[in-house]
């Protein structure tokens, strides 16, 4: 009998990634994103919002990552460009990003040993996100309501990242779905 794994990593396929920059004080930006992606841009540093099939992560004071699930995700960039007016930047970065879901009872321990960032739930409750170093790679980590974490990192780091994860999680029992 094998124990259930302490950490489970699952690929999250079929999503578009769009980098958005602009003035969050400009209602035209917020309205266009809400209309096209159905999600509000978070204004609070280090937080993220989810609505329906879209997620919006705070990356900087004028920068967000939109992640939209579904087949039509690649149209998000075009639709945003049509809906936006003024000074902004919208760039589809789908080809550069990997999105994984980390779950399991020991996922917090693996994050804590992999990064100098304080991933303790007291400091990093559901709704928080942070870009930080994960071993020697950089990643965006987001805490979810169900206790799991979403991790977004660059495709070029994928091999390094997944090897590190498999090694770090081995002591708790690791399963890659």
């Amino acid at each position: 009998m094998s124990e259930p794994p302490g950490v489970v990593c699952r690929e999250c396929p079929d999503r578009a990634f769009v980098n958005v920059r602009g003035d969050v004080g400009d209602p035209r930006l917020r309205d266009a994103v809400a209309q096209v992606a159905g999600v509000d841009l978070p204004r609070e540093p280090g937080t993220w919002n989810q609505a329906d099939r879209s997620r919006a992560y705070w990356l900087g004071p004028d920068e967000w990552l939109l992640v939209v699930e579904g087949d039509d995700g690649l149209e998000v960039e075009g639709r945003l460009r049509s809906a936006l007016d003024g000074h902004f930047s919208v760039v589809d970065v789908t080809g550069t990003q990997v999105h994984k879901e980390l779950s399991g009872p020991d996922v917090g321990k693996v994050l804590q040993k992999s990064s100098p960032y304080d991933f303790h739930p007291r400091h990093f409750p559901p709704g928080r996100c942070a870009q930080t170093v994960f071993a020697k790679a950089t990643a965006l980590v987001a805490a979810r309501e169900d206790g799991a974490f979403d991790i977004v990192f660059r495709r070029s780091y994928a091999d390094y990242f997944m090897r590190w994860l498999a090694d770090a999680a081995a002591e708790y029992g690791y399963r890659l779905d």
Binding site: P45, G46, G60, P61, P116, Y117
Partner: peptide, 11 residues
């Protein structure tokens, strides 16, 4: 001052 929290020097 942008993230509004203390972070490790290596970042």
């Amino acid at each position: 001052p942008h993230c509004r929290e203390a972070r490790s020097e290596e970042e």
